[in-house]
Design a protein around this nucleic acid. Structure first.
Length: 564
RNA sequence: CGGGGUGUAGCGCAGUGGUAGCGCACCCGCUUUGGGAGCGGGGGGCCCCGAGUUCGAAUCUCGGCACCCCGACCA
């Protein structure tokens, strides 16, 4: 490609509303163009990079035994009624009515469609296992798209779905996809970590995210400083501090005028926060529930949601708290009737707590679970924080930010049970198909790669995903001799199999160098009157400062070295 | 969905009541060729939209829309 013919222009300044580095660079280099919030067009350079990423993904999916399919973007809402996600999918499904007044949705993901596909053609265990995938556009009507390509509404996603007869098979498929994912990210030049994650709106039990650790990420990852434990904060566990359980004391009420918080309570009584039982109120599906957790920990709402069965909890409003007869600041689960009680297991790792008396200005001493209040649900709802002991007993947790570039889920029978995807086993029995699903955001992967690989001058892309391999800058092209040599180089580089962007513009050298750097093309070749005086052409790696001068006849070899 | 901010030329910005300007980009000419060159000339704007106030609105008022950021939520 000749720069003089290339569609798309580089910008000296990024649009003011591009705050994110990848957004700025991708825009300035002419890779992408924003059309609306979270909706982008790809220009030729961006499209070339995306195509390369897509090809890598396809290659690894096929290698892992995946079969490519294509499912519809627009689907009848009925399909989503079957799985129950017509109501529960957050962000809301984008939908519209077709000309026959039928409700249609724009697919944000394809578990339903994939399950329907399997259901239609699987009848026997002999039909299993298999994995299908597609690379295709999704639409999710996000409340807040952000960061250029990092979080968008319309995006291309590689989504894969595995179907197995039993748990062992599902695990095998799952592991096989994990292997493919690791190879994909490696080939794209990304150093990602796999972390435990919450499965959110997709469902299923186990899920893992692939995360690029970088400060610009929006996810918080907690990882052990001594072991390979790593998890998204939504999911992260830790070893809770345990205290010896002494003799249970008598409950006694005492005055705490003006005390509204755990800190104030602990200070007044001269004890650590771990001696207090904190009560927090959440409203779930219109019902107020009381959540009790030891005073030294905070509630993780994702864990709470999962314990409560999947509905989204939110902090109750003061009005709601009042309406059920509770006193904010002096509340506890003690003596409460008709209100569901959720208790963090940290409460069982100690005794004789200070807790609210459910009476303005009073608290209780020696409050103990079971004797003084009950737990309808007991489990782990504590938020892990940096410095806490790793749950595997090895080391402390440290917090890092990261970008989620891939997510894999063990779905089990979540969809097959609801949608009736079954097969007949060797014994003639009907069984539900066990599924897994696996997603990679293609555009986000490019943005993440830029976040991870740039310097002050622009992107520094790995060859595998750069739009071109070589940036050939011809200077002094008014000189027919140099122009001729540049043309010959252009030819020979292409004949050698390189993808070359030939800057043949009548522009000053600085302009060409700036553009080459901005676009992040891994190898740069310069031919000019000066390079010829110096003995040939200059070859430089984008990631290196210094160039080397080689004889024209050695150009291919020098380029090969730079790109290897 | 809450809070904050911004909408003026392709991009970055100035313009506090008298009908719009600067830098870059763009076009023409000459000059120039090692890190976004120089000189001269030129083109381009429903000043986000609508209503109002005013003799007169980019500017003031009201309403709307769009976009960005923080949070909530989210793969």
């Amino acid at each position: 490609m000749r720069s003089s013919q290339l569609f798309g222009k580089t910008l000296r300044q990024a649009p003011a509303d591009a705050e994110n580095i990848s957004h700025q660079l991708l825009t300035r280099a002419g890779f992408i163009q924003q059309i609306a919030a979270g909706i982008f067009s790809l220009q030729p350079l961006g499209n070339r990079s995306i195509t390369k990423i897509r090809d890598i993904i396809r290659d690894e999916m096929d290698r892992a035994g995946g079969q490519e399919v294509n499912m519809p973007v627009v689907q009848p809402r009925d399909l989503w009624e079957e799985s129950g996600r017509a109501e529960t999918f957050v962000p809301p499904l984008a939908s519209f009515k077709d000309r026959r007044e039928r409700q249609m949705v724009i697919a944000p993901t394809h578990e339903e469609t994939a399950t329907a596909m399997a259901r239609a053609s699987v009848t026997s265990y002999r039909d299993l296992p298999f994995t299908i995938y597609q690379i295709q556009t999704k639409f999710r009507d996000e409340t807040r798209p952000r960061g250029g390509l990092l979080r968008v509404r319309e995006f291309e996603m590689k989504d894969a779905y595995s179907f197995d007869a039993d748990e062992e098979g599902m695990d095998r498929s799952f592991q096989s996809m994990i292997g493919a994912y690791r190879r994909i990210f490696k080939r794209c030049g990304l150093d990602v970590v796999m972390v435990e994650a919450d499965s959110g709106g997709i469902g299923g039990k186990d899920s893992n995210e692939f995360v690029l650790l970088t400060e610009s990420g929006e996810d918080i990852i907690l990882m052990s400083d001594e072991s390979d434990y790593a998890a998204n904060v939504e999911k992260a566990a830790f070893t809770k501090k345990s205290f010896p359980i002494g003799e249970l004391g008598e409950v006694e009420e005492f005055a705490t005028p003006g005390v509204k918080t755990i800190d104030e309570l602990a200070r007044q009584e001269g004890v650590s926060r771990s001696k207090t039982a904190k009560a927090v109120f959440y409203t779930v599906d219109g019902e107020v529930v009381v959540v009790t957790i030891r005073g030294d920990y905070d509630v993780n709402e994702t864990k709470l949601r999962n314990l409560l069965g999947g509905s989204e909890p939110r902090l109750s409003t003061p009005e709601e708290v009042k309406a059920v007869g509770l006193v904010a600041g002096s509340a506890s689960a003690v003596g409460l009737k008709g209100i569901r009680s959720v208790v963090d297991d940290s409460i069982t790792m100690g005794s004789n707590y200070l807790a609210g008396a459910n009476k303005e200005g009073f608290h209780l001493r020696n409050v103990n679970i079971d004797r003084d209040f009950k737990a309808d649900i007991l489990g782990d709802i504590a938020e892990a924080k940096k410095g806490y002991p790793s749950p595997d007993g090895k080391g402390k947790l440290v917090a890092r930010r990261g970008i989620e570039v891939g997510h894999v889920f063990k779905l089990g029978n979540v969809y097959s049970s609801k949608m009736g995807a079954e097969y007949t086993d060797e014994d003639g029995q009907q069984n539900q198909i066990l599924m897994g699903c696996y997603g990679i955001g293609v555009g986000r992967l490019l943005a993440a790669a830029v976040e991870a690989n740039h310097d002050d001058s622009g992107m520094v892309l790995p060859r595998a995903i750069a739009p071109y391999d070589v940036y050939l800058a011809g200077l002094n092209l008014n000189d027919p001799d140099i122009a001729g040599k540049a043309e010959m180089l252009y030819e020979s580089l292409q004949n050698a199999g390189y993808e070359v962007l030939f800057d043949d513009r009548d522009a000053p050298p600085g302009v060409k160098f700036k553009d080459a750097d901005l676009m992040g093309i891994p190898a740069r070749v310069v031919i000019s009157s000066r390079s010829i005086e110096n003995g040939g052409v200059e070859v430089k790696a984008r990631a290196e400062k210094e160039s080397v001068v080689v004889a024209e006849t050695d150009t291919l070899e020098a380029v090969r070295k730079v790109l290897s």
